[in-house]
Design a protein around this nucleic acid. Sequence first.
DNA 1: CACCAACGTTGGCTAGACCAACGATATGAG
DNA 2: CTCATATCGTTGGTCTAGCCAACGTTGGTG
Lengths: 152, 152
Amino acid sequence: MDIEEGTPPQRLRALPSRLTNQAALAANRIVDQALAEAGVRRYHYALLAASEEYGPASQAALGRRTGIDRSDMVATVNDLAERRLVERAPDPEDRRRNTVSITAAGRQELTRLDRLLAAAQDAFLAPLGQADRRTLTDLLTRLVDHHRGEQG
Amino acid sequence: MDIEEGTPPQRLRALPSRLTNQAALAANRIVDQALAEAGVRRYHYALLAASEEYGPASQAALGRRTGIDRSDMVATVNDLAERRLVERAPDPEDRRRNTVSITAAGRQELTRLDRLLAAAQDAFLAPLGQADRRTLTDLLTRLVDHHRGEQG
DNA sequence: CACCAACGTTGGCTAGACCAACGATATGAG
DNA sequence: CTCATATCGTTGGTCTAGCCAACGTTGGTG
């Protein structure tokens, strides 16, 4: 009957916070689906990436890098350690800490995930050309940097 | 005292899907806090806005407008009807339907929420000038439009 | 030594976004 | 007119991300 019955009200359509949220929803759907093919979730990728780029580090430090809460980090490391993608070992220099290190298999998996993720980004950004993609990334980076560490 | 220990790995920092998600996190935090002052959540605002802009409509139609699931719509209408911000009445022309209409008090509340939300948007977009805000809104709109109705 | 901070871990909470199924009602095909 | 199909509101789930509080252990400092 009514054409375009799915059009949101103007108030919502113009709301930057909602646009951002809706875009994030779409992005997460695409990314989650891509990662699911490899049997992992976003937290797993984030941890592997941080572990690869910064080398062996404590769970707390990795949490600060990735924004993953200490409590969620426990389960994430559990998962990846079970699959031998990272190793968890007590830090002899500070016995409160676990040292988490990425394994060779972890690096390999990370490379595979990088490819899946690149395709996902492309699907997400499909309607935008290269210049627009750069602009968007720049604007979002400025927003995220501004709000980093505010209360999250 | 490591400097900038919270810096995310490059892989994550450059990932548009993650940037979008982090921005949405910040936006939602700010918006939720603003709405909480008025004792409402995002769903409530969305429903009031749709109800005001499109007039009396069925719950299902409002759900399509706002992206709120039918099942979640029930509770949302319950909440607002309890506070007399909307009215729910059986539709005599189609007895499957409930007609939801915004009340005078609902319009008043909506105006109040509009103000709170405008301030929240400003806080969210603080680091961007007017031109950048328009650019961001445009880019996000194109993304959201492209992905609308894909599987959400 | 006494404190306080940081660590990993357990356990819990919330909201948002979903899905499946039901009975009641409308609609459309034949 | 009948039968199949679709829609509506509603109930009752599920899942996950993002949180927070508290605990015992350990480290560092006064």
